[in-house]
């Protein structure tokens, strides 16, 4: 084990996978000398050269499309987007092309493509640079979606993503890059897709969250413990494939469910979790599940406003108390 930041864990896995397989390469804006604005490719051009750590023009549609095409032709591209908000500039290449190519060609194409980058609140980047977009990509069949909440998951999920023969959207969180965690040194350490992780075991209420909201749910759990509520915190880790089973097993035990995410609440992935739990474990529920997410307005710049739009630890605590029928 080595204690590493989330950003270093990502960089190390990219380097290890590039050493292991010469078809793996990275393209993105400012990833050479600058090493990406969050340092996820820092100094890698020195070892791998600028053919494999490739600066692109500011042309997201072409970057993603070139990822799809080079993957179809035998490479294993990693496309770094500086902000995952820019997926929207390249939406056709992701949703109409990457996600559908294999299926519409009758299973002929193989697209080992990773699209990775950061999203979310925390740096005052305002409406077009602070969104949480993982839900959108969960909606369209054909792309896998990973959301690591700590450095170890980032390493294990990224390795799985790079070795996967399907397009994977890999959502990092800008506020997590500096956070440290013990990461296994095994160069084959993989976290399987579709396997949720119980970040804290508990018996009274199930709290499901991902990315930044794992640490916030854990903070809420610590608060709840003080008033005698024992919360179980589950991180799905991948939204596609989604591990409904682990959540259902937990709800069978606790009878209560709170789902929280930074993405907008309306039609956010938490609604899907609630729907699946209601379908699969209705009779085990002691209370109506609560789903928390960002308010239905764009992310504002001012820090107080930004905090007012996304769920707070306090709101998670309140929601858990409510489903537990505790004042």
């Amino acid at each position: 084990m080595s204690k590493k930041t989330y950003a270093t864990a990502i960089r190390d896995v990219i380097a290890e996978e590039m050493r292991r397989d010469e078809n793996v390469f990275v393209m993105g804006e400012d990833i050479e000398i600058l090493g990406g604005i969050f340092g996820c490719t820092r100094d890698l051009y020195k070892e791998f050269g600028v053919d494999r750590i490739r600066n692109t023009p500011i042309s997201e549609a072409a970057m993603i499309g070139a990822g799809v095409g080079s993957a179809c032709a035998g490479m294993r591209p990693i496309v770094e987007l500086m902000y995952m908000d820019f997926t929207l500039v390249a939406a056709d290449q992701i949703i109409n092309q990457a996600a559908k190519t294999r299926y519409i060609f009758g299973g002929k194409a193989k697209i080992p493509l990773v699209i990775r980058g950061q999203q979310g609140i925390g740096r005052g980047n305002a409406a077009t640079h602070s969104q949480s977009l993982e839900t959108i990509f969960m909606h369209f069949p054909g792309i896998k979606v990973a959301c690591p909440s700590n450095a170890a998951d980032a390493a294990g999920l990224l390795r799985t993503a790079i070795r996967d023969d399907n397009p994977v959207m890999f959502f990092e969180h800008k506020a997590l890059y500096a956070s440290k965690f013990e990461v296994p040194d095994d160069p084959d350490f993989c976290v399987p897709f579709g396997k949720a992780d119980i970040k804290r075991a508990g018996k009274d209420v199930t709290i499901v969250g991902s990315l930044l909201y794992v640490s916030r749910a854990l903070e809420a759990a610590a608060e709840l413990e003080k008033i005698g509520i024992d919360a179980e915190v589950i991180d799905p880790r991948t939204l596609v494939p989604f591990d409904t089973q682990t959540i259902i097993e937990s709800v069978k035990k606790t009878g209560k469910l709170v789902v929280v995410h930074e993405a907008h609440k309306v039609a956010g992935w938490g609604a899907e979790v609630v729907s699946q739990v209601v379908e699969g474990a209705f009779k085990y529920l002691d209370a109506a599940p609560i789903h928390l997410g960002a308010k239905a307005c764009p992310l504002p710049f001012n820090i107080e406003l930004e905090n007012a739009v996304v769920p707070s630890v306090e709101q998670i605590v309140e929601a858990a108390k409510k489903v537990c029928n505790k004042k």
Partner: peptide, 26 residues
């Protein structure tokens, strides 16, 4: 913009300024 936008989105429609834009090419 009432503090909602910060540096990257200043706009003043009364002066014909349809806005700064944080999306390159936007």
């Amino acid at each position: 913009c009432k503090g909602r936008s910060g540096s990257m989105h200043i706009a003043d429609f009364t002066k014909g300024n349809l806005g700064a834009n944080a999306i390159v090419g936007g």
